[in-house]
Every structure is written in C-alpha cells, then in structure tokens.
Design a protein around this nucleic acid. Structure first.
Lengths: 352, 352
DNA sequence: CTTTTGAACTAAAACGTTTTAAAAGATTCG
DNA sequence: CGAATCTTTTAAAACGTTTTAGTTCAAAAG
C-alpha cells in the first residue's frame, strides 16, 4: 500500500495528470493548485515509483558495467581505481552504475558472451554498457550491439571494426618509455621477465622490449629473456635463473610489478645492491612498489583516466555522440633519491 | 520499435497471455503451442522488457550499495575487496548490485542523508540497501528505513537500536590481539601511533592499546603515545619524534599500516634494525606491508568476509529473515622468518 | 453578443508485462 | 447424450506513471 500519484491527486482534489505536471514542473498550473498538490504530496510522503516512470519514459538513466573476468581473479585487485573513477564520472553525468561480473562459464557450460550482451541490450534496463574483459574481445561478440545501435564502450581491450568504441592503454608505448629510459641511463645489458604467453598486454610489453633494443642496435640475448606468469613467485624464479647468467645484466625490465617485487626480493637476498648494480623496473604502478626498499621504478597505467574517458565516451554516445577509439599513454614512475619523478607519456591520440 | 510480447503472440497465433505462460514455464500449455511460441520468440529475437515485468511484479532483484564517503577518499583504496566480495555474494544470491557514492554535500549544502535514504526506500527501484559509511551512522538517519521495514544493512559501522542490521569489524579485539602478541613476545616498552582524533576505529584501537597494557600491569608512558592521522607521513613524523625518547621502546603498534610504513622508513634511515631492535606493527592488512623490508606484521581486517556476511544478511532480510548484528574478528598476520603466519581471532559472535 | 484566445485542468491512452477469472474445448463418466 | 471434470486458452485488469489531445472556463477581442 505505497502512496501513489492517485492518492496525492485525491487529497489535493485534482487529477493525477495535474500532480504529475506540478511535480515535474511542466505545463501551466495555478499557484493555488501547485501549493495544494505539493502540500498533499508532502503530507503523504509521496515518492514517485521510478519503475513506472522508467517504463513510460523508456529510459532508466542507468548503465551497466559488465566485467568478464576469470573466476579466480578479483575485480578489485587491479580495477579498484578504475571502478572508482568510472563511478565518479558516470554519476557526475547523471547516470547510475550497475555492476555485474561474469566468468567464463555459466551454469556449467561456456558462457555465450554474445547472447549475454544481447540480453543486456534488449532488456531495456540499461541505456549503455561498459564492457571490461580480461581476455580479448572479438568483434563478433559485440556485433549485435553495433547492429542494435546500443551504446557501449570496451575498456582495456581493443576491438577494431565499425561502430565500436574502446579505451585502452598503450602497453607497447609504456614499455618503450621504460626501455628508452633504461638505455638513456646507460644500460645496455637489459633482461626481461615476460608475462604469461598469449596475454596480449604481456606480448605488447615484450614486443616493445625487443623493438627498443633493436632500434638502439643492442643485441638481443636469449638468456636475458625469461618466462613468467605475472605472479610474484615467477619473478623470484626468473631472478634466480638470471643470476646464473654471465655477464649479469645491469637492468631487468619486468612485465609487471608483482614479478618485479619477487625479483627484488631474490636480488636482495643474494646481496645484490639493487639500483646501484642492478636496476629492476616494473610495470603497472601498484601501490606496493612505492614501499619496497628500494622502491621499484615502474610504468604507471592511468586507470583513473581509463575510467573517466570510458564514462565520457559512453555518455557521449548515449546522448547521440559518435563512437571513439582512444588509447591512453602511461607514465613513468621513477624514484630519484627520495622523491618520485613522474614522466608523462605522450598521448598517441585516437585510433580507428 | 522493439519487439514485444504482442508481436510474438501475433506470429504464433496465440494470445499474449499464452506467450507469457510459455516463457515463464507456468500453467499448462500444449506441446504444440509451446513449440510455436518459442519458435516465434526465437525468430523475432524477443527479449522481455524487464522494466515492465518489474513494474507488475513489484520487484527488481536489485540492491543498492550506497557509500557515504568523503569526496577526497577513494572508494577503491580500502573497499576494493569489500566491493568484490559483496558483488560475488549478491549475485550468487540472484540479485543485482547497483552502486552510488554520496559525499557530505549535495548541491552545495549538506546532504540530508535521511531524506536520501528515504528516497531510495520509496522509489521502488531497489529491494535492499547496503549502507557503507566513513563516519558514524546515527539511528535517526535510518529510522525511516526501519519504520518502512525496508531491508538494509549497515557495513563497517555499528548502529544500536531496534530493527537495524550491521556488520562491523572488531577493531578493539584486533588491536588487543596485536598487543597481546607483542607482550607475549616479551615486549614491555610498546609505543602507539594514534589515528585521527574522533575516528571511531582509531579510538577503539587506541583503547585496546591502553587496556592491554593496564591488564598486564605495564605502566602507560605518555611519551610513547604519539599523534597521527592515518597517513604515511604522520607515521614518519611520529617515528622521528619517538626516536628522541629514552628509553626507546622495543615495539611500536601503529593504528594503521600506512603509518607503519612511514615509521619503518624512518627507522631504517636511522639505521635501526627493525624487528630485531624495534618491532613495528600495523593494522589493516593492506597489500604493501607484505613487500616492505622487512614485512610489517599487521592486523588483517576481514574485508572479504565483511562483504559476504553483509550480503547474506541483506538477502536474508529481503526474503523475510530477521535483523542481525554481527561483529567480525580480525586475524593477525605475522612474518616468521620468510613465511606468513595467520592467527585467527575468535569471533565474538553476534551482538544486540 | 459572438468569437477568439489563452490559461488551467483532465480523461484516457500508452508503456509492456503478469495475473486473474473465466471461457472454450476436450475427455471422462454415468 | 448430458453432466462433470480437466486441460488449454484468453480477455481484461492491473502495475503507476507520463503524455496526448482535449475540454472547460474566463477574459479579451471583434
């Protein structure tokens, strides 16, 4: 028995239509009537049923953040800041954010991503979709959304093709900055701890490692390239292996911070003066690298920016704007003595 | 011109009611009719309009996470894991999660929290509410929700009084565990770096510090108690101040990890053998304390558990269950050589 | 005095479902 | 064959708004 617009109308002695007019400040209503309506609404504690309103208006002012991540990965670990900025930016634009996480499986069998997305687009509950995926997104998976002209933006992955927006981070460029920095510091014997095989971001960072060496005429030594899986322990293992190689490199560029932390631990355990004798460089910009001893220089991913830009693109699209493809550059975080140096990368602007 | 149930009905040569019956597997429908309906729905790519369904059913299967946090604080920093587990638990129960962040102000003037909450309860958009607040929650602010019998649960704060559920963490108990541990290790000269004045969690940790000393007959020295504000730099400052005190304490219990990190940095800069000569203890269990050198022992807040229990309570309440007040205990994370030791606190069960 | 204008208000349709109550049709029973 | 029962189907109401297309009434204009 919640109080409806009819109750208000009855108490105020007017029609429901008039109440609606008053409460939404539309049409012409006499001062007297307006007063009576507001008074009645106040007295009854009336709040409009947003569901009914949404149904008739055909809009909900809500967008969905749909995260496709592996079940063992936590959304928060890496994407906390992303969610944070997304939430801020989305709500600043007057929209609400709903979240859902989907794994690789649903009810036992592989999730039909395409079907799931189509459901989202057609159920009329959301006006837009932010698609966050741990693995690459295929055009075929989102082509339905494109055809339906449903506003959506892919975050953290690139999807080439007509009609799709994305915001991604320039891992290649970030890794290149790191490598250029190391070389500028005089390093020529630079090792690399790779991320998991087949992981697009890991591959890009690896490619930048190779390319930068080649561009500078530095020979690539296979024994300086070690496998890892983004986890700290694999960084430890790789460092143990690396320390048997001669000549020792003077720098290690790790594909992510976690591995860099593992590498740092082993190096210190072996009595190596990290930074003086061996520079360890990370990638990601997680908080922990600021507090290791010494702090680990790293490539910072602009996750806040990522969320902000994604929100802007999505809202723009909902309001009739056009599709955009954006690639954000990373910043270098290097510790110069006790202070932090931030080197901003140059935006290589919008793609496609 | 989205396809509606009427379109399906027309194509299948039946009434909309029949289509509804088929699609929701209710009532008795002949095999032949069912087949025709499903075929028609399939062919037209029909997806029900969830808005309309929600309106008639009067439910949305959606709960709202409403975070009242200061504008300068990021939701992610601390609550990433909480959100993660909340999301998992909520969706496992078949509900959706929507999020909104509210600061202290709205449109320039102080936000009327009570009004905001009432809006949420009455707009019929949500079936439940998770209330996360950085500052204490007053009973008066939620009394409307209680009166309306709207399912909600307060997270990370305690609200005494009839009809309100909460899940909170036992900061006092956690701090007590830490202190007992230090004393059991033989420490008697234990300093404390306090958190911000007036911060309930900081006060509880401080109180536990005092109480434990008293219980063990250890005199309280004012010069061992230093002010801080939960930030790393205040930990640095406090440690600098502390190092001038004689006799030096053999342990410092910091009100949070960030300050402990700052304290650790200063101690190492001054050549103190941390852990051997001075044990530094933190509180929170942020990731970074695992990777400092040496790692900082700390009191781990069960944030994942917090979210899980909150979700359980809320869902229980939505489905007619009763209100609950739960206080979760912390675990001790201590580094014994190279391995991590986890000491589980004893749950002091359910309150009020 | 009739017509026009404009302000104030409202009846009813619409949004797309679900559900209720009843109708229609098929089958069984006496 | 008619009544009773059971199965299948449906018309219409309901959910609570907003919006459309008027209507009513008073004042202004001719």
């Amino acid at each position: 028995m919640p109080v409806t617009i009819k109750d208000v109308a009855r108490l105020a002695g007017v029609s429901p239509a008039t109440v609606s007019l008053v409460l939404s400040n539309k049409g012409q209503v006499s001062e007297e009537t307006r007063r009576r309506v507001l008074e009645a609404a106040q007295k009854l504690g009336y709040r409009p049923n947003v569901l009914a309103r949404n149904l008739v208006k055909g809009k909900t002012n809500t967008v969905l953040l749909c995260a496709f991540i592996r079940d063992d990965r936590k959304l928060s670990t890496f994407y906390g800041e992303l969610i944070n900025s997304l939430l801020t930016a989305i709500s600043t634009s007057g929209y609400y954010l709903q979240m859902v996480v989907k794994g690789e499986f649903f009810n036992g069998h592989p999730l039909d991503k395409r079907e799931a997305l189509l459901d989202i687009a057609r159920n009329r509950l959301f006006e837009g979709l932010i698609l966050l995926s741990h693995w690459p997104v295929q055009y075929a998976e989102v082509s339905d959304l494109v055809r339906e002209e449903f506003p959506f933006v892919v975050v953290n992955q690139r999807v080439e093709g007509e009609g799709v927006s994305y915001v991604d981070i320039d891992h290649y460029g970030g890794a290149k900055m790191a490598m250029e920095y190391l070389i500028a510091q005089g390093h020529t014997r630079i090792a690399h701890f790779r991320g998991p095989q087949g992981h697009r971001h890991a591959e890009e960072r690896y490619r930048a490692y190779l390319d930068t060496l080649v561009e500078h005429g530095i020979p690539i030594r296979k024994e300086y390239i070690l496998e890892g899986d983004f986890r700290r322990l694999s960084g430890r293992r790789a460092m143990e292996e690396l320390l048997a190689v001669r000549p020792l490199p003077t720098a290690v560029f790790c594909a992510n911070d976690k591995m860099a932390i593992g590498a740092l631990q082993v190096a210190k355990e072996r009595g190596i003066r990290v930074h003086e004798d061996l520079t360890i460089f990370g990638f990601d910009g997680i908080e922990a690298v600021k507090y290791t001893d010494p702090p680990i220089p790293t490539v910072e991913q602009p996750l806040g920016e990522l969320g902000k830009v994604a929100a802007e693109i999505l809202v723009g699209q909902i309001q009739g704007g056009e599709r955009k493809k954006v690639v954000l550059c990373c910043n270098l975080l290097v510790w110069d003595g006790s202070s932090v140096g931030v080197m901003r990368g140059r935006d290589n602007g919008k793609g496609g």
